[in-house]
Nucleic acid binder design. Structure first.
Lengths: 241, 241
DNA sequence: GCAAAAGTGTTGTGTCTACACCCATGT
DNA sequence: ACATGGGTGTAGACACAACACTTTTGC
């Protein structure tokens, strides 16, 4: 193998400054039975008038997560974010018309029961009818949705969409909105209880005017992300067929 | 919600240059029945003498993937990489002693049957007895291993560890090394054939001196990553129990 | 009593692990 | 023949989807 001279990684001499670096977030919430993403409408060029994911530049010495939390604080209160995780870092050559810019995208989730006051230029858009988006943001939203959809199957990430207490029907509606297909309340309960994600609070929700049996209230046992279906297949030997 | 003034994302005026940005890779290969990672020993400060993941600075205008491929070309021939995917971007405040540096980590895989000529400072280290690593690299290696382990269960990523043709026993040995636990050749074959990841080549491997039935040769049907077990649970209605 | 909504019982199916057994080859 | 390694057959465990049925309420 050839040993061509190489830029030495991290030498004692500080390297030249790198590209501008921004952070972005796909912030998702279920509102009115639909999964929505938080967007704001750009006032200035480039892409004035188009809608964009919230975010902004990284400040000197700042951590990526600190940066996206700081920028999001201008849109929604940070305490209302029930989950935040990194999605990917984008570096496409033409992603910004005027400068060389990288962007690290995050996925943020907000429980259905909080209704943050939004700035005038900001709105929750249903994922299935998005307007034209600025930069390469149109490609990032589906990545966030897919990440959520996948994790609903094998983790407890539902906690981040749900309020503190809920009935199984209410939870079912959240899953339907997030997954985009019907979900049986019967089986949803059994899966989540068997996996020990849910526990009954003991409380009951009184029926409405039309009657019906009062529903039991549940809560997620943990409010931190946890993988619950680790070995779908090829599991280590010893726990039976 | 308060509307405190905010750094406007991507204004018409080009922003100040950002942090130094490096790319790194966790390059994994199964050699001698063990999963190993490619490391090189640093000659200069900081961390002279410690082992580090291969990589280096991003060049102006360069894509992250192009960057890590360029840096890896100095260690292993790029054509020998059977898979490359982004892991995560690190931004911890103290990750480099002398400068503000971000790093985007990749996972790279090399099939068992290639044996790249390595520079003198470079070596394959077994994952379960790593030396002390430079910077924050010790945290990145397990992330790469976990990503591989998880994807072996629900994708066809095995193609990236295996040679073009192989017997089921040989493939089993790869899975054992990568997963870190016993795997039954019997069941491995059935899972991978049922999911249509493997197909017989028609060829046979002649038995060794000690005899035994000749083994059928298989190959992976596709050599691009494909999710094969999409809906482990909460699948859309209509395909039965 | 009747409609409505919640929740349980039950059946059937597919997929997996484990293990017994059969097959093809060398000595 | 018999040892060695490859491969198939099959039984049991489980988790799931689907759906019938029961429970609890309002009117």
């Amino acid at each position: 193998m050839k040993r061509k001279p190489e830029l030495e990684s991290s030498t004692a001499v500080p390297a030249p400054a790198g590209p501008a670096h921004a952070t972005l977030a796909v912030v998702l919430q279920v509102r009115g039975e639909r999964l929505r993403v938080l967007l704001w409408q750009r006032a200035k060029e480039p892409h004035a008038g188009l809608w964009a994911l919230p975010g902004g530049y990284l400040a000197p010495g700042e951590t990526l997560e600190a940066s996206i939390r700081r920028h999001l604080a201008a849109k929604v209160d940070v305490r209302e974010l029930s989950h935040l995780e990194q999605l990917e870092t984008l570096s496409g050559p033409g992603r910004h018309p005027a400068e060389w810019q990288l962007a690290t995208a995050y996925l943020g989730l907000v429980p259905t029961d909080v209704d943050p006051a939004l700035p005038a230029d900001t709105r929750w858009h249903p994922l299935d009818e998005l307007p034209q988006l600025a930069f390469d943001h149109a490609a990032i939203v589906p990545a966030g949705r897919e990440r959520l959809r996948a994790k609903l199957s094998y983790t407890n990430i539902g906690f981040a969409l749900a309020p503190a207490e809920f009935t199984i029907s209410e939870l079912r509606d959240l899953y339907v909105a997030a997954l985009g297909h019907e979900v049986s309340a019967t089986n949803l309960q059994r899966i989540l209880v068997r996996r020990r994600l849910l526990e009954p609070t003991g409380g009951r929700r009184e029926p409405g005017r039309v009657g019906g049996r009062p529903a039991a209230l549940f809560r997620f046992r943990l409010h931190r992300l946890e993988v619950t279906d680790q070995f779908a297949v090829l599991r280590p030997p010893g726990r039976g067929g």
